[in-house]
């Protein structure tokens, strides 16, 4: 089970990293196209949706590397109770992931059942970008379960991400 969860997390990580690498291309294309008075109607919207996918699906990676910021003041005061703090943090994260999955699924269902399109010339069915929400919640949930089972991403010291 843990392996399956980890595999799903890896899949999401792969998608989000790929989006990160290619995101600059359509935006550059748009900048150049506009300079030639030929702006597109698709770049604005599709890159926004790509960014949202990147942000939500990136959760699996963020949990695995312990990147989600936590205030560790009390943990510093009561180092012996660290495992209880960790457990509390994980349980709240799981509950919140369930809320994200449930509400995201509801939102996708709402867009699908109402056949809602984006109110732009591109007319994208809104359930497609909104699918990123429940998927992101799923990634957050599964990777947190993996962390609880294996300790991955929990004991990471505050990491240096070159943001």
């Amino acid at each position: 089970m843990i392996n399956l969860a980890r595999q799903i997390g890896r899949g999401m990580t792969f998608v989000s990293i790929t989006l990160m690498i290619v995101l600059c291309l359509p935006i550059t294309y748009e900048a150049v196209a506009r300079a030639f008075n030929a702006p597109t109607i698709w770049v604005f919207e599709t890159t926004l949706y790509a960014f949202i996918f990147l942000g939500f699906l990136g959760n699996a990676l963020a949990v695995r590397s312990g990147a989600h910021f936590r205030v560790m003041i009390l943990v510093g005061v009561f180092p012996k109770a660290k495992k209880y703090f960790d457990l509390t943090a994980q349980l709240f994260t799981l509950a919140f992931a369930v809320l994200i999955m449930a509400s995201g699924s509801y939102f996708v269902w709402y867009a699908l059942s109402g056949s809602i399109l984006s109110a732009t010339m591109l007319e994208i069915p809104m359930w497609i970008p909104q699918l990123s929400i429940p998927l992101g919640g799923l990634g957050l949930f599964l990777q947190t379960v993996v962390s609880m089972a294996t300790g991955e991403g929990v004991d990471e010291e505050i990491q240096v991400f070159g943001d």
Binding site: T13, L54, N59, L61, A62, G162
Partner: peptide
């Protein structure tokens, strides 16, 4: 490039959720 993208994705997702 891949390593840079991993680091950037991690930070972006962390900020995005915030």
């Amino acid at each position: 490039i891949k390593a840079a993208a991993v680091a950037a994705t991690t930070t972006t997702s962390m900020l995005f959720m915030l």
